[in-house]
Computed example of a mutant assay.
Amino acid sequence: MGAFLDKPKMEKYNSHGEGNNLRYGLSSMQGWRVEMEDAHTAVVGLPHGLDPWSFFAVYDGHAGSQVAKYCCEHLLEHITSNSDFQSALQEENSVDSVRNGIRTGFLQFDEHMRSVSEKKHGVDRSGSTAVGVMISPNYIYFINCGDSRGLLSRGGAVHFFTQDHKPNNPLEKERIQNAGGSVMIQRVNGSLAVSRALGDFDYKCVLGKGPTEQLVSPEPEVYAIERSDEQDEFIILACDGIWDVMANEELCDFVRSRLEVTDDLEKVSNEIVDTCLYKGSRDNMSVVLICFPGAPKVSPEAVQQEAELDKYLEARVEEILKKQGGPVAPDLVHVMRTLASESIPNLPPGGELASKRSVIEAFYNKLNPYRSDDTDPVILFFRGFS
Rank of each mutant, 00 (worst) to 15 (best):
P8K: 06
Y13N: 13
Y13K: 12
N14A: 04
H16A: 12
G19S: 14
N21K: 14
Y24V: 04
M29K: 05
R33D: 12
R33N: 04
R33T: 08
V34P: 04
V43A: 13
P47R: 02
P47F: 07
L50Q: 03
A57Q: 05
Y59Q: 02
H62A: 08
A63I: 02
Q66Y: 00
V67T: 07
A68F: 08
K69S: 10
C72Y: 00
S81A: 15
N82R: 04
S87V: 07
A88N: 05
L89K: 06
Q90Y: 06
N93L: 05
V95W: 03
S97C: 11
R99D: 04
G101Y: 03
G101F: 00
T104S: 15
L107E: 11
V116Q: 12
R125V: 11
G127W: 01
T129S: 15
P137K: 01
Y139S: 05
Y139R: 01
Y139V: 09
Y139E: 11
I140N: 10
C145K: 00
C145D: 09
V158W: 01
F161A: 09
F161S: 13
T162C: 12
T162A: 04
Q163W: 00
D164P: 00
H165K: 01
H165W: 01
N169G: 06
L171M: 08
Q177C: 11
G180L: 02
G180M: 09
Q186E: 11
V188H: 06
N189I: 02
V194F: 00
V194E: 03
A197C: 02
F201C: 07
D202G: 14
Y203Q: 15
Y203A: 09
V206E: 14
K209M: 10
G210A: 08
T212D: 14
S217E: 12
P220K: 10
D229R: 01
E230Y: 05
I236P: 04
C239F: 08
D240R: 01
D244P: 06
M246P: 10
L251H: 01
V255H: 14
L259V: 02
E266F: 09
V268N: 07
S269T: 02
E271T: 09
D274K: 08
L277D: 03
L277E: 04
Y278F: 10
G280T: 05
G280A: 07
S281D: 08
R282F: 03
M285Y: 02
P293D: 14
G294A: 14
K297E: 14
S299H: 03
E301D: 09
V303I: 13
V303E: 14
L309A: 12
Y312N: 13
A315F: 01
V328K: 10
V335R: 00
V335K: 01
N346Q: 15
G350L: 03
E352M: 12
A354P: 06
E361N: 10
A362C: 12
F363N: 11
Y364M: 06
Y370I: 07
S372Q: 02
D374G: 07
D374S: 08
D374E: 15
T375M: 13
D376F: 00
F381Y: 15
F382V: 02
F385E: 14
